[in-house]
Design a binder for these strands. Structure first.
Lengths: 110, 110
DNA sequence: TCCATAGTTCGAATATTTTGGAACTATGGA
DNA sequence: TCCATAGTTCCAAAATATTCGAACTATGGA
């Protein structure tokens, strides 16, 4: 496993995104990433659940095109695919982020 | 059964909304209501599925605070709770509606 | 009053998700 | 080379969701 695969944004469906964001654990991961505004490891984003459960949630966030993970040594660095999602589904993720963390600093606000 | 009960908007969670919109059938119902811009009966919103299946989807949309249903004679008139959702989760539903039906005419656009 | 219409509720079958332990992979450091 | 760390994958159990037929409720019209 060299790098983790992510779906091209154009094959992500809106329902995938809605589904990924319908779970409190996943919403929290996304909120924390947005608030941090930087890459974070899975460890930093830990929610007191077993690693296999966390891994499952990251997998769904990746499949929904929301989170991008790059391998760096023995850590996995996660970030939000903000720009791509904004282009394909304008306003959707931004509005969600505003709701879950008012302090989220997203570049392209209206 | 006199009138159908709906949750007050302040006890609707964002995850409820995301969940409700993670199903293609439900997204379609919402999109059609938005596009029509008027109340529609369940019959009009039929998606070629058994009535009990449709009823299930309407129930979830109501529980998520997205759809409001009032009984009128033997019909149930459905509409979107646009203003309430916009107030509680600004931009979220509007952005989704823009994605699923570009022609949706929502009042408070940015 | 009887019937058709419009939907809901119930219940069971099926399908999908979630959870978490255990085993695995990859990396970096001692 | 050996070990600890960071995650993933695999698997099975438990929980949730979906589907849809059948029975039910309410209304309005004949």
């Amino acid at each position: 496993m060299r790098q983790i695969k992510h779906p091209p944004i154009d094959q992500v469906e809106l329902t995938d995104i809605m589904y990924a964001l319908s779970d409190p654990a996943r919403i929290e991961i996304v909120g924390r990433l947005a608030q941090a505004g930087r890459q974070m490891t899975c460890g930093e984003l830990d929610l007191n659940r077993p690693k296999s459960s966390m891994s499952h949630h990251f997998k769904i966030l990746r499949a929904a095109g929301i989170v991008e993970t790059v391998i760096d040594g023995k850590e996995h660095l996660n970030s939000l695919r903000l720009a791509e999602i904004e282009e394909k589904f304008p306003g959707v993720l931004n509005a969600v982020l505003k709701t879950i963390c008012l302090s989220a600093s997203i570049s392209n606000e209206q």
